[in-house]
Simulated scan of single mutants.
Amino acid sequence: MSLDALNASNGIEEQEVEDVGETTYLVTAGVLIAIGVLGAVLNMTVIFVILRDRQTLLTPVNVVLLNLVIGDFCVSIIGTPFPTVSAILGRWYWGYTGCLWYAWFMSTLGLASIGNLTVLAIERWLLVTRPMRAFTIRQASYLVSGVWIYTLSLTIPPLCGWGSYGPEAGNLSCSVSWEVHDPSIGSDTYIAFLFFFGLVVPVILICWSYFEIIRTLRKVRKRAGSRGTYEAKVTKMVALMIIAFLIAWTPYSISALLAQYLQVTSSPTVAIVPALLAKSSICYNPLIYAGMNSQFRTVMKKFLGMSESTRPATISQHTGVSASNRAGINPIQIEKE
């Protein structure tokens, strides 16, 4: 059954798809291919390195990180090929059933990514401010499972009649039907529910966690009377995390809210841009969360046969949680690099 036929049978208002032009389609296909290949390589590298040296790198924070990069890897190998083929052909090629499940799958992975970033922020907050209560590997595993359960509670409703999934961005991809206004399926209430629990709540937790981290580190700096390298690196990492999150999702979120509640819609050509930005997050997540991990870099250099520093390995101070957390040692008190 076609998208238009099924939308009509469900009482969903038909959306006219504007031709965005062959050049735009081909450029979009090229960008999607680049995102997919780069995302697959980067995330697969992180997965391989963490699993290869589990004794060193399988720490609580990296359990969450592994969950994040596995989800991003799935997006790169499953989420990008479908719209890429559609961009080459100039239309969504996979029919209604493919649209429905693609939209659900991508929504689930996208919201799970946000959930994992929230857990990472909370882990950072505990490590810096309450090291005696830092996560264990078992607790991190429970939280990872909780992220998926929480995410499914947000993305299953459209499959059960509350809200809907449908085509978006020039008919090249599928997602939540942001532009559909149908009281019979509660499209407006579902989108409000999705945004509040899928975006607003995580952003509040992330911002609060980072604020507390920075405030705690500033207190330590004042007490120590010097600016430590540790604080500078953590602050830089926090800033990059927030900026990356906002770059990836804010444009897409704003366009979706405008379409639903103010009925302000962009042309399909313009609407493709925030969708591509959101998908691009699979590329820079591994660079930020693994690239700034000193333990990860050490293992990667060893795997590549590169010379290592003669300095003895220190307890992870950036994104890894080591035995010091389990022993209750405050990383702020550890000698700075």
Rank of each mutant, 00 (worst) to 15 (best):
G225V: 05
R223C: 04
M241L: 09
S255I: 05
P268Q: 06
A256G: 14
A275W: 04
G228A: 08
T229P: 03
E231C: 06
L258R: 08
A224G: 08
T216R: 11
R215H: 13
G198Y: 00
A256K: 01
A244V: 07
L257D: 02
A259D: 01
A271Y: 00
L258I: 05
S266M: 08
T216M: 06
T216G: 05
S209C: 05
R227I: 14
A256M: 11
W208H: 09
A259I: 00
V273N: 06
R218M: 10
M237H: 12
R223V: 09
Y261F: 15
G228F: 05
I214P: 02
P268N: 03
I204M: 09
I254Y: 11
I214D: 11
T235N: 14
E231P: 01
A271M: 07
G198P: 02
I204P: 03
I272S: 03
A275F: 09
A244G: 15
C207L: 14
S266N: 05
V273I: 15
W208Q: 13
A256W: 01
T265P: 00
V201D: 00
P268M: 06
G225D: 08
K233A: 08
I214V: 13
S267M: 10
A275L: 11
I247E: 05
S267A: 14
L258P: 01
S255E: 08
C207V: 14
V264R: 07
F195C: 04
I206T: 01
L240A: 10
I272C: 04
R227Y: 08
V220K: 11
P274R: 03
A239S: 15
P202E: 00
F211E: 09
L199R: 01
G228P: 06
W249K: 04
R215V: 12
S209P: 01
L240W: 12
Y230T: 08
I213K: 02
L205F: 12
P274Q: 11
G228M: 11
W249R: 06
K236T: 14
Y261R: 06
Y252C: 07
T229V: 12
V203K: 01
G225N: 05
L199Q: 06
S226W: 13
P202A: 04
G228E: 09
V264M: 14
F196E: 02
F196G: 00
S253V: 09
T235M: 14
I242C: 04
M237P: 04
A232T: 15
P202Q: 03
V200R: 01
S226D: 06
